[in-house]
Computed example of a mutant assay.
Amino acid sequence: MNWRAALLAACLAVPTGLWAQDVSPAEAAASALEDLSAARDLLEAAKGGRERVAALSETVRAYEAGLSAVRAGLRRATIRERELSLKLAGQEEEIAALLTVLQARGRAGSPSLFLHPEGALGTARAGMIVSQMTPALNAQADALRETLVEVSTLRQLQAGAERSLQDGLTGVQDARTALSQAIADRTDLPRKFTEDAVKTALLIATTETLEAFAAGLGEISGGPLETAANVDVFDQKGALPLPVAGRVLRRAGEADAAGIKRPGVLLATRPRALVSAPVAATIRYQGPLLDFGNVMILEPKSGLLMVFAGLDVVYGRTGEVIAEGAPLGLMGGKDAAIGEILTQVGDGTGSDLSQSLYLEVREDNEPVNPESWFRTQRED
């Protein structure tokens, strides 16, 4: 079974009414398939370095969306299959009685079998009772048949899940490898400035906070930057997409387990998830910083900084101007093995969101709530 067929089967096999989200499984599957198709078309048509990077980025995002759709479909399929199996187990006596009656009716080859010993009147009464019972028996039999068919379909879906997931994981890993190579080979991005490595090292060594580092960025570039795109980013305020697929784990000002409050939001993501630029911007800094791990700092416009901290791999070079949607890097961790994914699905857990990305926005070197810029929500 190829990836598209597997994705379609996994998403469409679950009845629409079983999904908690507003989006039906058919719509989710169609969207994921369109993303995959468009990404592959872009990849085949890509010739230049920048085109290839964009195509591969779309491919990675499409695979991530497809795998997420399959996980969600399998999780709901597993829950529904358990629900139906428990229901059938609790109705064993009722089902046995129903089957006995149906078998008796099936053996009745002649109306004479329904003759009543009290004569014609008794026979008429018995016939009326049987005629009233028949629609109810048929309805029960139809309901039982539908339940058994649904259970069989769900079990077939679960049995074929391993190959579907393996194809998807292999595809996304290949796409990430190709993306990293394409970015390494890229030489045609415009640059606003060239980083002074000595000044950068000194700034990192002499600052102890993100605020101090952000304030000193102007010295690295030699002055303020112009807008990285013709579109004014402030026109997009409140409507920017999150840089990575996931959910809000902690909002601005909420204390963590140690009681520390930060002005940014913490996003829960899957391992190796692709982090993308929400808007066209200049890379002001990329690399390790303080205790934040690998950090990417973008400047869409002079005085506006967007900080993304906690990446495992960062792409690009300081001073480069990148487009909206450009890849910034990858989250850490390792893709779950097939057995782990199926266990998570079976348990109904959300433990696959094991990585976290910190997002902070600063206007004129003052932190602001990122939710004033980004569309955020608690759930996937």
Rank of each mutant, 00 (worst) to 15 (best):
L240F: 15
P241I: 11
P243A: 15
G246Y: 05
G246V: 00
L249V: 08
R250T: 00
G253V: 11
A255T: 02
A257D: 14
P263I: 00
P263L: 08
G264V: 07
V265G: 02
L267N: 02
T269W: 00
R270S: 13
R270K: 15
P271H: 02
A281C: 13
R284C: 09
R284E: 10
Q286C: 13
P288G: 06
N294L: 14
V295K: 04
V295G: 04
L298Q: 10
L298E: 09
S302F: 08
L304W: 03
G310Y: 03
D312P: 06
V313H: 11
Y315V: 09
Y315C: 09
G316S: 11
R317H: 11
E320K: 12
V321M: 05
G325F: 08
P327K: 07
L328Y: 05
L330D: 07
L330R: 11
L330F: 15
G333A: 03
A337R: 12
A337W: 02
E340Y: 02
L342T: 13
V345S: 03
G346V: 06
D347R: 14
G350V: 05
Q355N: 11
E360G: 01
V361Y: 04
R362E: 04
E363K: 07
D364P: 00
N365F: 08
P367K: 03
P367H: 11
E371N: 13
T376S: 12
E379K: 14
E379M: 08
